[in-house]
Structures are given as C-alpha cells and as structure tokens.
Simulated assay, not measured.
Amino acid sequence: MRRPLPRVRRGLPLRAVAPNAVTAMALCFGLTGIRFAISGEFEVAVTMIMVAGVLDGLDGRIARMLHGESRFGAELDSLADAISFGVSPALIVYLWSLKDLPRVGWLCALILAVFCALRLARFNAQIDVSEQPHKSAGFLTGVPAPAGAALAMLPLFFWVWTGETIFRSPYLVAPWVALIATLMVSSVATYSWGSMKLRNNIRFEALAVAVLIFAALVSAPWHTVCALCVAYIVSIPFSIAGYARIKRLRAVSQGGQSAAPAAGHAGP
C-alpha cells in the first residue's frame, strides 16, 4: 500500500505576518493623516505621513531579517504606498492650499495621487525584469514615493516653520506639486540610499552625522525636515551626472569587449 503524500500547507507563512503588520500600520497612519487634515490640524497630518514613511522603511528590512518576503507583502506594500504617499499627501495639500484654486488645484492633487500609483505600478512590473540599468548601477528610476510625498509637502513644511503665508499660496503650491509628481514618473536617475556603501575609514563620521541629524529632528523637527528635503533636491543633478558617468564607462567597456574578438579574427 502506498503511503499518503504529506499535505502541503498553503497560505501566508507566519514569519511574513510581522512585516505585513508593519505595512498595515503605515497604511493606518497615512489614512489618519487625512482625518487630521479635514479637521485643520495640518501639523499632525504631516506627522502621520512622516511616521508612515518610517514604517515603510522598516517593513522591508523586517521581512528580509525574518526571511518573510512574499508576493503578497510586495503587493500590500505598493498598495499602502499608493495611499500613504500618493492619496493622503494629495488630499492634505489640497485641503491646506489647493482648495483656493479649485479646478487647477484639484487637477494637481489628482496628478500627484495618480502619478504615485503609476510609479508603483511600474516598479511592480519591473520586479522580475533582469535588465534594469538604473538598479544595476545603484540608482533609482525617478523620485521614490516616500521622498515624493515629502517634497510635495515641502511648502507646508516651510509654512509651519516660518508662518509665512506666501508658502500657502496655491499659485506656488500647484506648479510645485505638479513638478514633483512628474519627477516621480520620470526616468531621472536618483540615489538609492539602500545600495550605497560606506568606506571603512568614514564609518565613524557617518555615524556621527546620523546622530546629529536625529538630534536635530528631535530639537528642531521642521527646520531639519526642510533642510533634508532641500538637500535631496540638490542631490538630483549629482545623481543624474553620476549615472551618466557610469553609463559612459559601461559603453566604453562594452565597446572594448566587442572589439577584442574582432581583432583576434583579423588577418595578418
């Protein structure tokens, strides 16, 4: 008599629950930001988005640490990102400023939300693609969703910091939001901080800088957030130039490799 084959258990592994729970928490914080924006508490609303960004950075690391990566987790993460960093910031910025310019303002809010979803859809479609020039060179394609959300709310950060009404003007906020949304779906090469590696001789200095940034966030959060956003914007031209340099080096290397076999078959 044949022994019955062991039953294969299907479903989500238990070790994948923790990172997915963190992703769900990020989604809750992102949606809660809309609730506070509706009641006019824009500082708390922005804080909810920033907490969602921190949790978004943790869920992937927890999944890799627990070996709990799954297709379900990847899809849930993209859905949470589309809401937390696309829909929520768009509604927050609209309720804060763009509602004073109803048609154009709502159009810019829609562009931010939809372009964020398009960026995440492009990212999911390229997960199994082996040939990704930007990724293989250590760069990202376009501005990532969390950074895009922070940059789109940069006028709000300056408004909270300074109290100047100019930063709340829809004539300033609307084109700025449209520009950031365009950068999110663009093919511009941006730095991938996760793929950057530090040399051994500057690790202590990097740790000291991280401690200073954390201390600044605690003592002067809005000043520090504005400075970080401006620094990221300034880094974009350098990332474009860095990728262009790597692209040229690759072209020269490939040209040399293709020329070597041809020289070997050349006649006397």
Rank of each mutant, 00 (worst) to 15 (best):
A181K: 04
N20C: 10
T224E: 00
P170N: 00
M196H: 14
S253F: 03
E41R: 09
G40D: 01
P19G: 11
L183K: 01
R203Q: 15
R2H: 07
F29Y: 11
P144W: 03
G194P: 14
Y94P: 04
S258E: 11
T224V: 14
M25P: 12
E131Y: 09
A206L: 12
Y243L: 08
Y94R: 01
W96F: 13
L27F: 04
R64A: 15
S253N: 03
Y191R: 11
R250D: 14
P237H: 07
L207Y: 13
Y171C: 07
V22M: 08
F72H: 00
G163A: 08
V46H: 05
V225L: 14
L98T: 03
G194H: 13
A174T: 12
A121V: 13
I62G: 13
P13M: 00
I246P: 00
I127A: 03
A37D: 09
S97C: 03
E43Y: 04
H265Y: 02
E205L: 09
P19I: 13
V188M: 02
T32C: 08
A82E: 06
L66T: 12
C28I: 14
G86A: 09
P237Q: 07
G163F: 10
V87G: 00
A24R: 00
V129H: 05
M1D: 10
V218R: 02
F238C: 13
V51D: 02
Q132C: 11
T190N: 02
W193I: 15
G73K: 02
A266V: 06
L101W: 02
D81C: 08
A215Y: 08
I34W: 07
L151R: 06
I240D: 01
R10H: 09
G73M: 04
S195R: 15
A109I: 11
A117S: 14
Q257G: 12
L31D: 00
D128G: 00
C229Q: 08
G255L: 07
I213G: 14
L120S: 08
A21F: 14
S169T: 11
I236C: 07
N200Y: 05
V252N: 01
S39T: 15
G33L: 05
R103Q: 13
E69N: 13
H223V: 15
V8L: 03
L58R: 07
V234A: 12
R168N: 13
S235L: 13
V252E: 05
D100Y: 07
R61W: 12
P102N: 05
L228Y: 10
R61Q: 14
Y94N: 05
G267A: 07
A45N: 04
L154Y: 10
A21M: 13
A181W: 01
A210Q: 10
E43T: 13
S70Q: 02
L76W: 08
A90N: 04
I83D: 00
R199Y: 07
